[in-house]
Amino acid sequence: MKIPVIVLSGFLGSGKTTLLLRLLAAAKATGLQTGVIMNELGQLDVDGHILKEYSETKVEKLLDGCVCCSKRSELASSIQNLCLSRPDVIFIELTGVANPEEIADVLTEPNIHASVRLKQIVTVLDAENVLDYNSFFESDTALIRTFRRQIETADLLVLNKTDLASTPKRRKIDQLLLKHNSTAVVIPTTHSRIDSGLLLADIAKQERRTVAAASSSFRLLKTVPHAGEHGSSSGHRDGEAASYSRVQTLSLPLAAGSYPSRKAIEKFLLKNKNRLLRAKGYVRLLPDSPVMLLQLAGNQITWSESLHQGPSYLVLIGIDFNKQELEEQWRILERQ
């Protein structure tokens, strides 16, 4: 019996990790064993540490790149590693700039398609900001195309943060989703709360004594070619352009013994907000205080206590930012 794979897609800060945590809790409550592959653009892991605090599931982490291009070969290897323990379901949480269509393609590769099957692609959307992406990324056609494919290839669209979107904005979002995917189920919600049964109800427990027999069946996604492209709607197979081009990441470690104030860090983020898509990391504000999980998503900066015991750091994801300038600002902040 093939292991079902659920792909969690969606742009940066949409709420994918929150949804994953809810699904893992629901799976555990029903006795399902899970495996997770987490992909992050930055060199330092944040979401994996969050997952460790709330779940005992087996996790494969792919850092410093995107599984639909630079980390594509590692994805297949990670899937094989998870299959050894025969979980009942595998979740793959993508980076915010990944095209889920490419992951579906990886699952058809000969060395793994006998063991896994693509069950569903779930795309999480940020209702507060989703209408602004086209204008924000107007000069990056690859990124706009990736965002659209996240919508077009989804079986389930989770419209998150609806409490931050006005009724007129909601109507425009509904029109956008209908235009790009008229068949997907759309679930409006807040804090990524959905009925887990929509994804987990029909998943059966795996036989763990032997690996399932090989099968030639697999799912292919409908590909919609774009003008000027050949062979792939994402435009980056076999060494072609990536699904994003101007997105950059920067890891900013905090020097030992440095305890900048919450106000100073927020000022740093807001000063550079026009170029930031996402920021997340772990910061200890005082020597004897708990390490705080800091997240910037859209217009919201949140702080929450964590169990993280390692050094403090911040990971920035943005568009065309000046890394040297940001590092200099960070060093000044460290000395405050």
Rank of each mutant, 00 (worst) to 15 (best):
D195Y: 07
E56L: 03
V211Y: 01
L276G: 04
N272L: 04
G31Y: 02
L220Q: 15
R148N: 08
I6D: 07
G257L: 09
V5E: 05
N111P: 11
C66H: 02
E93Q: 10
S55M: 08
V186D: 03
S115W: 08
C83M: 14
A98M: 11
H236M: 13
A154E: 04
R72K: 11
I121Y: 02
R117I: 07
E328N: 04
G231L: 13
S73K: 05
K172N: 15
I265K: 00
T183D: 05
T30P: 00
D155A: 10
G298C: 10
L156G: 08
L62D: 03
L176Q: 07
L200E: 03
S234D: 05
L84I: 14
E266D: 03
S216G: 12
D126E: 07
N299A: 14
Q336W: 12
V36S: 05
I37F: 10
S85W: 10
I194A: 01
A165E: 08
F321K: 04
H180E: 12
S243V: 09
E101V: 11
S115F: 11
S9C: 05
Q309S: 14
G298R: 01
V124K: 00
L326H: 06
A297C: 10
V224Y: 11
K58E: 05
A227Q: 11
S135M: 13
T210W: 12
V7S: 01
I301P: 06
Y282P: 05
G310K: 08
T183L: 12
P287R: 07
L276M: 08
C66W: 02
R237V: 07
I6Y: 01
T17A: 04
A201C: 01
P260E: 05
P287I: 11
S196W: 06
L326A: 09
Q295N: 13
T190L: 07
V7K: 00
E101Q: 13
A201N: 09
K280S: 01
I37M: 09
L270I: 14
P253Y: 10
P100M: 14
R193Y: 03
N81L: 15
Q206S: 12
I103F: 06
R170L: 15
R208M: 09
E128R: 13
T167A: 15
A184Q: 06
L107N: 08
P168K: 12
I319F: 09
I112A: 07
L157K: 10
V5W: 04
Q120E: 07
A201D: 12
A127F: 14
L333D: 02
L307Q: 15
S73M: 13
N111S: 14
S166M: 12
T108Y: 02
K205L: 12
D45T: 04
L294G: 01
K263P: 00
A264F: 04
M1P: 07
P100S: 14
L20K: 10
H230Q: 15
G235I: 14
V211I: 15
H230W: 08
T167N: 12
Q175E: 15
V36A: 03
K179S: 13
K179H: 14
Q80N: 10
A165L: 13
L19A: 06
L44W: 12
S77M: 15
L84V: 13
